[in-house]
């Protein structure tokens, strides 16, 4: 049966079209908020918007990799709390500790938990949502146990440690710098390295990956390991930024991160996820958080609006896809 030649390149791929739509939506929201409150597009507000979104963005990269492998990680909020707590306790005990060591400590602890989730999912074939739900509880409980229910407060932390989040590099806040570095590395990693591409291959078709001899389990493990490392990093940044470590730090934050990914077009059924979309998704979520107070929306509305935006995004996605499919059928001239 003759098929249409596929040689002409379409003007925009579907994913690009989706990202364009998201971009326009962001601009529209930005414009609307700007008209209500001119503070929105001031340099200082934009800086604070990105500073506040940086941690979310860093975590979203890891979550994207996990989602690409058809997984999900619900334990990251707890890992943030635990690593934050442990580094804060370390810093309180050894005030002279170089900030760099604190960050490394956080990353390593995070990777340990990531590795545990990775073993459960990749080696022992536990459903990701179940494995990480269990990990979430265990790690959250451990956070209370190590802290003995106490907080670590601002005065117990050295200025050097707090400067991790407040300091600047080339006039840009450290958090933003770190997030940019993470994004550049991630973009290179998933586009130009073998392992990065293979993670996508495994998510796209796990059976095929197995048959063609890709180390499927190791790649899935790797995704959780990276997610753990990034959560550990985020934990240190979080505690440095808010200058306090508590047992209930970042509770439920995994939902925001997953939301950012979904808004950014990462498919929960695996294999699909682009860095540019992810940036847009994160920024949109950041704007929602930043702009609502500026236009006098009570903070209690934030959660509901976030949820509705997510639902609207996924449903729009489905409707658009159905529409393209219907158009394709019409063109088949049968």
């Amino acid at each position: 049966m003759p098929e249409k030649p596929l040689n002409q390149r379409k003007f925009l791929q579907p994913e690009q079209l989706r990202e364009l739509g998201l971009l326009l939506f962001i601009l529209a929201i930005g414009l609307a908020v700007q008209l209500r409150n001119p503070v929105f597009l001031s340099i200082s507000n934009i800086t604070s918007l990105f500073t506040n979104t940086a941690i979310l963005g860093i975590l979203a990269v890891g979550m994207m990799l996990v989602l690409v492998t058809r997984g999900i990680d619900l334990s990251i909020g707890a890992i943030i709390a635990f690593t934050g707590m442990v580094t804060a306790l370390t810093v309180a005990r050894f005030p002279g500790l170089p900030p760099f060591v604190a960050i490394l400590e956080g990353i390593i602890i995070g990777m340990v938990f990531g590795a545990l989730s990775g073993i459960l999912v990749a080696r022992l074939d536990v459903l990701p949502i179940i494995a990480t739900l269990g990990m979430m509880n265990v790690v959250r409980g451990l956070t209370y146990v190590v802290s003995g229910g106490q907080w670590v407060s601002s005065y117990q932390m050295s200025d050097g440690f707090k400067a991790i989040a407040t300091g600047k590099l080339f006039g840009i806040n450290n958090l933003i710098v770190i997030a940019i570095v993470v994004y550049i590395v991630a973009a290179y990693y998933i586009r130009h390295t073998r392992v990065g591409r293979r993670i996508y291959a495994v998510g796209s078709n796990p059976e095929a990956a197995e048959i063609s001899g890709l180390p499927r389990r190791r790649l899935i493990f790797l995704a959780y390991l990276i997610m753990g490392g990034l959560s550990g990093l985020a934990g240190v940044l979080w505690v440095a930024k808010f200058a306090s470590a508590q047992g209930n730090t970042a509770i439920g934050y995994e939902l925001n991160v997953i939301a950012a990914c979904i808004l950014g077009g990462v498919s929960i059924s695996g294999g699909v996820g682009r860095i540019f979309g992810l940036i847009l998704g994160t920024v949109l979520l950041g704007i929602l958080n930043n702009a609502l107070p500026l236009i006098n929306v009570s903070p209690f509305w934030q959660m509901g609006i976030q949820g509705l935006v997510i639902l609207a995004a996924v449903i729009t996605n489905v409707l658009v896809r159905r529409n393209t499919e219907r158009d394709a059928l019409r063109r088949r001239a049968i």
Binding site: W301, Q302, G304
Partner: peptide, 13 residues
Amino acid sequence: LASMIIYRGIAYI
């Protein structure tokens, strides 16, 4: 996940 956020969000509202 979405309804988890929305329902609790409405409770807060």
